[in-house]
Every structure is written in C-alpha cells, then in structure tokens.
Simulated scan of single mutants.
Amino acid sequence: MSAPNLWRRLVAEFLGSAFLAAIVIGSGIAAQRLSPGDTGLELLENAAATAVGLFAIILMFGPVSGAHFNPVVSFADATLGGISWRDAAAYLPAQVAGCISGAVVANLMFGLDAVSISVKQRASGPHALSEVIATAGLLLVIFALARTGRAASAPAAVGAYIGAAYWFTSSTSFANPAITVGRMFSNTFAGIAPSSVPVFILAQVGGGIAGVFIIRFLYPALTPAQAAQIVVPHETDNGSGPEHDQHVSSDGR
C-alpha cells in the first residue's frame, strides 16, 4: 500500500473515531442535562443519538477507510482475509487517539473541563458477559451482511444493532476497545472508570475471537474476494479511488 493512501485512511479512522466519541459522550451529557434524574430517558436519548450518528459517520468515512472505528473490527477483518495485518495495526492508534480526542471535544462543547477522568465503575461479571455478546454480535452483523451480498444495508444495520444493544446488554454495549479508552476521559453519563477498562477490553477481545469463529462456521465456503466485500467501497492500494471490492465498517461504540 502506498504511504499517501495509508495516511488518508488513518486520518479517516481518526476523524471517524473522534466523531463517534463526540456523539456518544456529547449526547450522554445532553441527555443528563435535558432529563435529570430520569435514567431510562437519558439512556434512550443517548442510544438514539448514537444509533443515527453511527449510521451517518459510516457513510461519511467508509469510502476512504472502510469506517472501522474499532480495533476489534479491524483485526477481525485482517483475520478473515480483508485488510492486511499491517494496516490493522496502523488503524489501532488512530482509532484510540480519535476516541480520546472526541471525548475532549465533547467535554469542551458542554463547558466542562477538557479532561475529567470518569469515576463510574462498570466492571462486573454481567457487564463482562454483555461485552462478549455485544462485540460478537457486532461482528456477526457486519460480516453476515457482507458475506451474503447485503453489504449496502450494513451502515443502517450497525447503527440499529448498537442502538438496540444499549438496551439488551447490561453494559450498554461499548463493544469497542478504542471507545472504551476514550470514555475514561469524561466523568459524565457515558464515562467509565479506568479500573473498569481492562475488564471491558478483555471481554471485547474475547467477543471478537468468538465472533470470528462463528462467522467462519456459518460462512465457510467463501472465496477471498467474497470475504473482502465488507460494507462500503474504499480507496484502492494505489490511492486512485474507490475499488469494486468492499471492506469492513464499523464500529461499535
């Protein structure tokens, strides 16, 4: 892959991850202020904004990088024959830095300190199980659609899945190590205490591994070209424009 094309993709992953964190955290702060003391309504507002925002940013950045915004998605894509391992490794710091930057921006947009470390403890057995299931389910949504010729539906499906997973998981479905790290930097409705982060990330990695095994079991007879058709067209290796094969999107939060 040429260096200019890789840099464009990394910038897209950084910006998309920053928007993702700003959407998740910013809408959480807004919900907390608009509906004080009503946790259910706050969660509904936060989930709705995240679902539609995720749909939009996948469409925004997918043609450049594939709109992963999530290291688990990137490494699953590499495992299943999509992007290279080198590119997946390069995506990771861009995604983490983007989510941290988005958290800082969200804090500033609501007049808070740029960095406020969260004290919200989330680590527990049920939360860890929820993250395993949420992350595995996210991969299944993405790759099942791609591998059955329905990739065009994936941006909406990913947004819908994450919106639903806010409610059917006790952890509210982070399903993304990068956003988990970013949410440490905002002591607000969407935050997570640093001491809870390792449990969440280990569970997300476990969910990613489980998801890859399930995908391989359910869709075993695919060619490498079919395996690479994930969500939205993105730039070719020489940086000349969108290619016909499609690579992975998204996120999770």
Score class of each variant (00 low, 15 high):
residue 124 S to A: 08
residue 171 S to E: 02
residue 126 P to F: 11
residue 180 T to I: 14
residue 204 Q to R: 09
residue 232 V to G: 00
residue 201 I to S: 12
residue 156 A to V: 01
residue 161 Y to R: 03
residue 210 A to K: 11
residue 132 V to K: 13
residue 239 G to H: 09
residue 157 A to T: 02
residue 168 F to T: 08
residue 157 A to D: 06
residue 226 Q to K: 09
residue 231 V to L: 08
residue 139 L to Q: 09
residue 182 G to H: 04
residue 141 V to M: 12
residue 187 N to E: 11
residue 203 A to S: 06
residue 227 A to H: 06
residue 164 A to I: 00
residue 160 A to D: 00
residue 238 N to F: 09
residue 153 S to C: 14
residue 191 G to M: 09
residue 124 S to R: 02
residue 226 Q to N: 07
residue 184 M to A: 11
residue 224 P to T: 02
residue 139 L to K: 14
residue 124 S to P: 02
residue 236 T to E: 15
residue 172 T to N: 15
residue 183 R to C: 04
residue 128 A to H: 13
residue 230 I to P: 00
residue 207 G to M: 10
residue 248 V to T: 13
residue 205 V to Q: 07
residue 145 L to R: 06
residue 191 G to Y: 07
residue 242 P to M: 13
residue 224 P to S: 03
residue 140 L to K: 02
residue 240 S to D: 06
residue 164 A to H: 00
residue 131 E to Y: 02
residue 135 T to D: 11
residue 134 A to Y: 12
residue 159 G to S: 11
residue 202 L to M: 15
residue 155 P to R: 12
residue 213 F to R: 05
residue 126 P to Y: 07
residue 225 A to R: 14
residue 144 A to M: 07
residue 150 R to N: 08
residue 198 P to T: 08
residue 165 A to K: 05
residue 131 E to P: 04
residue 232 V to Q: 02
residue 166 Y to T: 10
residue 229 Q to S: 06
residue 231 V to F: 14
residue 216 R to F: 11
residue 240 S to F: 00
residue 162 I to D: 07
residue 158 V to A: 11
residue 214 I to P: 03
residue 198 P to V: 12
residue 155 P to M: 10
residue 143 F to Q: 00
residue 181 V to M: 01
residue 169 T to Q: 09
residue 223 T to P: 00
residue 229 Q to Y: 07
residue 165 A to H: 14
residue 189 F to E: 03
residue 203 A to C: 01
residue 142 I to M: 03
residue 248 V to K: 05
residue 213 F to W: 04
residue 123 A to Q: 08
residue 168 F to P: 08
residue 170 S to M: 07
residue 220 P to A: 03
residue 219 Y to K: 01
residue 123 A to E: 01
residue 196 S to K: 12
residue 149 G to E: 05
residue 153 S to M: 15
residue 206 G to K: 07
residue 175 A to M: 14
residue 139 L to C: 10
residue 188 T to I: 02
residue 182 G to A: 09
residue 166 Y to R: 07
residue 159 G to C: 13
residue 187 N to Y: 09
residue 223 T to S: 08
residue 178 A to Y: 15
residue 198 P to A: 12
residue 149 G to N: 10
residue 149 G to P: 11
residue 219 Y to W: 09
residue 223 T to L: 00
residue 205 V to D: 03
residue 131 E to F: 00
residue 147 R to G: 10
residue 206 G to W: 04
residue 189 F to M: 07
residue 229 Q to K: 06
residue 197 V to N: 14
residue 220 P to W: 06
residue 244 H to W: 03
residue 236 T to P: 04
residue 175 A to P: 08
residue 175 A to R: 03
residue 210 A to E: 06
residue 153 S to K: 07
residue 202 L to G: 13
residue 214 I to A: 15
residue 226 Q to C: 05
residue 128 A to V: 12
residue 163 G to S: 02
residue 153 S to H: 12
residue 131 E to N: 05
residue 177 P to S: 00
residue 180 T to S: 15
residue 209 I to E: 01
residue 248 V to A: 13
